[in-house]
Nucleic acid binder design. Structure first.
Lengths: 197, 197
DNA sequence: CCTACCGATCGGTAGG
DNA sequence: CCTACCGATCGGTAGG
């Protein structure tokens, strides 16, 4: 019964990510699902409604993934944990349709959703920040991250991840993986103590 | 006589950057310029033509800005030069309309221009990379950047700059500047030698 | 879930 | 530079 509703959302997630919200028509979504355009209105009150539902699902699945990784951390190894977070991020970026749409809308939010998307972005960042802070504090206990404040630790990690986020689009998979490794290496050196390991 | 042609291009640069190519109509561009839509066709054969001209101007001005900064560098001070490049980038990001459109089309190129944009992207990256490479090599002569390869140096800088770019959209000016400083600090530590200054 | 249709807007043209 | 207009397509509705 609700099979088609989920199918519409799946196709919408894909098309909104590939072509953007404004440039995706309900007619082409319907065609891909195998129904006619007006039938979409049996499940969603408007195109905007459809977008909001797709977006909300996306956020929920991102937050869940990060919480799961947090649960799997070994609190004795801060450097490993921060790497795990980084890998999780890169992995989702390359394998999920959600990442493409999330990237698109955070970067170029469609007019009607600017505020909504901003709220989600801030919420999502709070989730990741709280994880980063707990990793940092554990590291400090172990005399890691010397000369770096909590805020600097968080900000530089988020900047790293945002940079990777953008670059995913520019390059082929091979070059992208090189880029990731290079950026990570410099980041890790940067947050490590000058006096070296 | 060609005053209106330039005005059309200025407005188009702004709107294409803010709203994207597909979601910008010739009617609204005309309105902003103070003419009617068909008059645009006195200066451009099509909407696609207008976009291509805007894009070509954009590339030219970006390349010029980077070349100018390169010319002002003091080759004895690699760390200062890389900081200058970083500042140039951040400055242009916050003050020029070109940067916004450029980032938009490199990430989410409108269908009809995918190949054209890719060509320009590769060209532009060659310019910035060549500047970074010459900074890096001067640094190596001075025993800076120990343990970092040329590719890693270039990749991590571009990642830093891409991260900053994304964050520019999301934060207030004050928070953004804090973020920039934190990201820069970790980057600089990361590319500097472990054995410290 | 469908067919048939709506007003609005799109890029673009004719003709002056 | 304009007015007037084109076919196509958009999101959305009526009615079954």
């Amino acid at each position: 019964m609700n099979d088609n509703k989920q199918r519409i959302k799946n196709v919408a997630l894909d098309y909104f990510g590939q072509k953007g919200y404004e440039d995706t028509s309900l007619a082409e979504i319907a065609k891909e699902v195998g129904i006619k355009k007006p039938s979409i209105y049996n499940h969603f009150r408007s195109k905007e409604d459809l977008f909001v539902e797709v977006l909300e699902d996306l956020i929920a699945s991102e937050v869940t993934a990060y919480r799961l990784t947090e649960g799997k951390m070994n609190h004795q190894e801060p450097l490993l944990n921060i790497r795990k977070l980084f890998d999780l991020f890169c992995h989702r970026l390359m394998t999920t349709k959600e990442a493409l749409l999330w990237k698109r809308v955070t970067f170029f939010p469609p007019e009607p959703f600017k505020d909504l998307i901003q709220e989600h972005f801030i919420h999502f960042e709070k989730v990741t920040t709280s994880i980063l802070v707990s990793v940092f504090r554990e590291g400090v206990k172990q005399s890691l991250f010397q000369g770096i404040t909590e805020d600097e630790f968080v900000a530089s990690f988020l900047c790293l991840v945002d940079g990777v986020f953008l670059e995913h689009h520019y390059y082929t998979k091979e070059i992208f993986e090189q880029r990731i490794q290079s950026a990570w290496k410099v980041y890790e050196r940067g947050v490590s103590s000058y006096k070296g390991e």
